[in-house]
Design a protein around this nucleic acid. Structure first.
Lengths: 246, 246
DNA sequence: GAGTGGTCTAGACCACTGA
DNA sequence: CAGTGGTCTAGACCACTCT
């Protein structure tokens, strides 16, 4: 059996992985600076950086722009098809959750959105952009697109609470079915800056389209997730139960 | 309005994006070499490489180990909850598909698998590893774990065809419900080499657990997808129909 | 053997964060 | 202000692929 000689970057990665799994680097702990690491391993910053970038891709560590590298906390388990409130879902997992409203306005719908939501070209939509924090870390940036006709005056309400709740209480609307798709890509521009990601960092884009009880499109969510913050989990059993309840 | 000065890497990225979207670099086309690009943009290979790595994270381009960079072909649309044959699904999208068997053996199940599949610790499982190509590009490496008691002699069969079909025809087993989870991470070792990915490249790990009509666990699939080869798409409507049929 | 990306050296200056 | 990562230079040699 021929043993491959590991590259320096691989050796650095291994060493850090070991420290993380034994707990000598705990969750959310800060790693030594790139300069310190390159001295420790007698190499250059570029080599260290390559090891760090791989660990980042794996989801073991993450960085905050010019603040340093940290050990990634455990991931959120997320089922995009459940209709329960986001806050409830997170708190069930013993995590702290905060939602911050970034903007709320009415905009011309893009051609792609018109197609996805079965709208006439040139339709307008309410756009609500929010940022979600789990344990004080920004993990998801979401843009909700709502049909204005269904939700008069909704932009004047307190949008930091659950939209599902507002739909129910003020507009008598409940979700029926929904569909979603998951698209792995990279973060740029406002998404990157809100999530404090470096430009070009890996990202999970989840697009959901929600329908009411009668099958009409209600809204569309575009969720931009840190790739290392979530594990998507879907069980058809739950769906069966949900449907049986209707 | 203050315009940010784009970095060189961002400018290179923009230029390549433009060429890809206008079609002057078509799908699957080879990009100029890193050395040529660094001359073209009057910069170093490292700067060029950073631009290329970002485009790779986005899913616009991909590399084959030491062969060069290529424009990513369009993604496969994939619904992990459907029970149809993989080949059928791919061919419906006008793509060519090939499945290659990598190995077939009986192994001790790992503790995690025992838990996931509700097995006694120390149980054995058939492990079938296969590699799937779409349009001659390796896009997914999968390990199937089967309960040996249910599938006597299956390892001696032709495993390059649909397992679903073999289950039905030779063992009278049909899928009932299934659950899956999606975990973004990075490729290492045999997964990376089979998919011809560089170590530490982004990857989508989809773990499926399939149950038969009576709710017993049949098998577990661990699918390692190139992150740029797929868009996951789930519609609860389809599930409703499926269940109504039962 | 020529061409490609993979890895690495040994620095430099810049932009931003936080005390 | 010091410390951090972000970006960049100008090279080098290695490992692998393809012709």
């Amino acid at each position: 059996m021929i043993e491959k000689v590991p590259t320096q970057a691989a050796a650095i990665r291994q060493s850090l992985v070991a420290q993380i799994s034994t707990g000598s680097l705990a969750a959310s702990a800060k790693l030594p600076s790139e300069r310190d690491l390159s001295e420790l391993f007698s190499t250059t910053r570029i080599t260290v950086k390559q090891a760090l970038l791989r660990l980042e891709a794996e989801g073991c560590i993450y960085r905050e722009n010019r603040r340093g590298w940290f050990v990634t906390p455990s991931r959120l388990e997320y089922n995009p098809i459940t209709k329960s409130h986001f806050h409830l879902m997170v708190e069930r997992q013993q995590r702290k959750v905060v939602t911050k409203v970034i903007s709320a306005s009415t905009e011309l719908a893009s051609p792609e959105l018109c197609q996805k939501m079965a709208l006439a070209p040139g339709s307008k939509l309410h756009r609500i952009r929010r940022l979600r924090y789990v344990d004080n870390r920004a993990v998801m940036f979401v843009a909700h697109y709502l049909k204005p006709g269904i939700f008069p005056g909704i932009l004047e309400r307190d949008l930091s609470q659950s939209l599902t709740l507002i739909y129910q209480e003020h507009y008598g609307i409940q979700y029926g079915r929904s569909s979603f798709d998951i698209y792995p890509t990279a973060a740029y521009g406002s998404v990157a800056s809100h999530l404090k990601l470096a430009e070009g960092s890996p990202l999970l884009l989840i697009t959901r389209i929600n329908y009411d009880q009668t099958g009409q499109v209600i809204d569309c969510d575009r969720e931009f997730w840190r790739h290392d913050a979530v594990r998507i989990s879907v069980d058809s059993q739950i769906l069966v139960t949900d449907i049986a309840r209707l």
